[in-house]
Design a protein around this nucleic acid. Structure first.
Lengths: 233, 233
DNA sequence: ACAATAGTGTCTGTGAGACAGTATCCC
DNA sequence: GGGATACTGTCTCACAGACACTATTGT
């Protein structure tokens, strides 16, 4: 890499997901808060340039953006990929490193759909949201949803979008919300118990029915199941 | 992204693999040919800055670099991920988008190990090569080898490193070289035939034994098998 | 005939899907 | 007891692994 060429814009984009009120939500940035953008009337995904002074690496940059924009600290972060080209941003050649961040649904962090001052949660429908996004962020969001969905077929990713204690039924519902299809209870529970994903607690979720045992994640890293779920044709 | 901040260096890195003489090879750049690098005595992976004038997007940039450095056109390219930070390049904060490129092993393109003027193939041992690489390229190479290896458990990726016509035994050997373990013949063939990966040809590979039917890939995109191979503990 | 590689048949094991059944709470 | 949800047992099926067997060439 030589130093005397024009450098493209370089930044980080974060697709942050959580589960709330039986739906999958993605964090969007309020268009009015983004001054000077080319399409300021459109919502976009949280993103920002690398801060050469403060960001040690790309991951820290993504975490900082999420913290600054919405005050959130994700339970899990992983890279999705990179988008770059001469035409995706009207200001010129730009490239971004995109992360998927999964947010634990704590009642105090997400009391309603709109929480943070500069960002807002939007329900995911299919592989997008109910509004047009700016730049190429519809494509990026679709890729993020599809990656989250396909990894849900063989990993424990949806567990990161639950509160720290949850029941097996709540975990199954999280998988179903991401996959947009129902799963068979017995098979799901066998799969979970055969892995060492969960540690049982001595507490129970009480209700107008048989109490359900509460569990927490046993590990920080996601679990990979031996076989993918088998989506029917 | 504001325009008035210092921009980090931004480029594309390519990890190009092929199979040749019963080994997996990765393309490295000759250190003497890279003028002005911080560690010119070390080999590195092919990489370069985005050319804002000529590269339409990141993928084109990666293809251009591979073509310019080694005259190669890959049979398959996919993104691996991004690496970026303040300390990975002594010249300052830098970020790179890394691609995995699989090169079809044609006899005329790879007559010997060293072909291109500016690059050279190096045998992959474990998840690296037999020499120290510059920058953070040992980490990137290890990630590329591991990604290639893990996707070989459930996709047809190694097929892209074979010549356009090959036998089932040659395909199985390709998988075995990537995975660094032997596979069971009958199970492998059942797996391949149950997919629509291959189209049989009417030609045969002759030798001092029963001739083997030649096949070619039926599709341009990789095939995803219903279940991963089951690595033994 | 024999070596060598190509290719097949059969058995087992694992884990997902389907579905029915039992368990335990509140009312 | 009834409603609701938690949890389990059993059967089937798809597909990978193991391994033995047959097939077809050259020498």
């Amino acid at each position: 890499m030589t130093l005397d060429r024009p450098r493209p814009l370089s930044g980080v984009t974060v697709t942050a997901f959580t589960l709330h009120e039986d739906q999958l939500w993605v964090l969007l940035v309020k268009p009015s808060k983004v001054a000077g953008r080319a399409a300021p009337e459109r919502w976009i995904l949280p993103e920002g340039p690398v801060d050469v002074e403060r960001d040690a690496d790309l991951l820290s940059c993504g975490r900082r953006i999420l913290k600054e924009i919405a005050g959130l600290t994700p339970a899990h972060v992983e890279q999705l990929g990179g988008w770059g080209g001469g035409k995706r941003d009207p200001r010129g050649w730009s490239a971004t490193h995109v992360y998927i961040a999964l947010i634990s649904a704590k009642a105090d962090v997400l009391p309603t759909v709109s929480t943070a001052a500069t960002a807002e949660w939007s329900a995911v429908m299919g592989d997008g949201v109910d509004r047009q996004l700016g730049l190429d962020h519809e494509e990026i969001l679709a890729a993020a949803v599809n990656r989250l969905r396909s990894k849900t077929e063989y990993t424990s990713l949806p567990a990161y979008m639950l509160p720290s204690e949850f029941t097996l039924s709540e975990l199954q519902r999280a998988f179903e919300l991401v996959l947009e299809r129902s799963l068979e209870k017995s098979a799901f529970r066998t799969r979970i118990h055969a892995s060492d994903l969960l540690a049982p607690l001595d507490r129970f979720r009480e209700g107008a029915n048989r109490p359900a045992k509460l569990h927490r994640l046993r590990h920080r890293a996601p679990v990979y199941f031996p076989r993918p779920l088998q989506p029917k044709e």
